[in-house]
Design a protein around this nucleic acid. Structure first.
Lengths: 246, 246
DNA sequence: ACAAGGTCCATTGTATACGTATTCCTGTCG
DNA sequence: CGACAGGAATACGTATACAATGGACCTTGT
């Protein structure tokens, strides 16, 4: 209950987002969308967190109409769950969904590797190396949020290189959902991708070795999935236990 | 211009959809969504057709607010295109998009076959046989609309059998987009799936022969793609030519 | 003291109204 | 006779207001 009280009292006139920068144009919605989705992907908004329309409209300085549009978009990407008369909340993926997502990534990302290896260019490789480096640095600096986002961006960028926009878009959505899954089932210790996995993968791709890249991506994803502790949480009173143990 | 005039004058008080049946509840939106998406998939609404919010709100008897929500949902599924200040229109897939969609289907639907063969049950097989039969009957009866919808439903149902809801949903969306692609690039003569392909595929799956099913699905999709006449249409005045030739 | 019921409030769902941009038509000028 | 410009109408984008439903808190009875 303290959470709700705190959220209510913080009715602040301080609007986030770039106050004077973004014109009131339609780009505003884009920026708000990214602000919310980034917050979810970076675990600043945890699964189960409620997203009240009034609060969001006050925070971002736009009317509920615009917020609703953004919320529906996020819902179709399955980052938030829209319960009929209860409002929006950050999606809490089930164990079955987690398995589905990783199976899908296994099939698609691995299947994409040969084509990516074929289309890899020095410029793209350089960009990916930069992303991998920034991810490592974030991880080393203890910034889990940034590391998770960079990892998802890396996988998404890689998929885009295949030239298939449809599949790339799907991979990006799967990566976003993976971030949510990590938030729920991930162990705090070692999260997500191993430090040098992405660099190793890049080496194979730069060599044009699609086969090895495909196999390596398969192991990479399996490793991530194996690092999760998938246990279906009980439905009845798990919150009470958590509260008392905390 | 005749089209526009006709559409304008038909301002009719006759509301479509079930007038007294569907309660004004939230189910109404579901039925409207399906009415529009079915119309698109069945080619009753052709690519490029404009979907004015006012007209739709009058036709279905709900306010523009609800229509906008539905339109945005259709836009995220890429069945309609939302141009910033121009409104909504049925998406006209480009040649590149068509290739992407069929490449994606190739990868995913083929990859799903082994698991589908493993999970195939007599009941599911029976249901799929019924769907294939109804598709054949529709095709024989000259009802292209129904045949196209049934074909998409068949592929979607098949994907659902894999047990992976995420991939199944994606396949369903790809099938919807395929219907659009057929509308633009398909030859009127022989459209979509060959008559007995689906039955043959079912036989392999009932035998639990995932390998052959996978190979057959690959050929099946390749055959559909090959039957298309992919030619990038000119941008300037193709509509005029079509109007004058018609 | 605990449980059950009722009442009140908070939050979402929907509609309507207003503002703005774009497009089509018409009139005039070259 | 054609082309450009201006105006009017049309259609989208946004905000605000109202209605309905579900939850939470309080009260009361056992």
């Amino acid at each position: 209950m303290n959470q709700r009280r705190a959220a209510t009292e913080r009715k602040a006139n301080e609007r986030v987002g770039r106050p004077g920068k973004n014109g009131d144009g339609p780009e505003r919605h884009e920026s708000i969308y990214h602000a919310i989705s980034d917050a979810i992907i970076e675990h600043r908004l945890k699964p189960g967190a409620r997203l009240r329309e009034d609060a969001l409209s006050e925070v971002f300085g736009v009317s509920r109409t615009g917020i609703r549009k953004i919320l529906q978009r996020l819902a179709l990407e399955q980052l938030v769950t829209l319960t009929p008369r209860r409002g929006a909340s950050v999606t809490r993926p089930t164990a079955a969904e987690a398995k589905d997502v990783f199976d899908a990534r296994q099939m698609i990302e691995c299947g994409l590797m040969p084509e990516v290896a074929r289309r890899m260019t020095p410029e793209a490789a350089q960009e990916l190396r930069d992303m991998a480096r920034r991810e490592r640095e974030a991880l080393k600096g203890g910034e889990q949020s940034a590391a998770i986002k960079m990892s998802a961006a890396f996988h998404g960028r890689l998929a885009r290189l295949s030239g298939n926009a449809t599949l790339a878009e799907f991979v990006e959505r799967l990566c976003s959902r993976s971030s949510l899954i990590l938030a729920v089932y991930g162990n705090a210790g070692h999260l997500g991708c191993e430090s040098h996995d992405h660099d190793d993968l890049l080496s194979f791709l730069e060599q044009g070795n699609g086969e090895r890249a495909q196999a390596f991506m398969g192991r990479h994803l399996k490793a991530i999935e194996a690092s999760l502790s998938i246990h279906e949480e009980e439905e009845e009173t798990p919150d009470l236990y958590q509260i008392f143990s905390a």
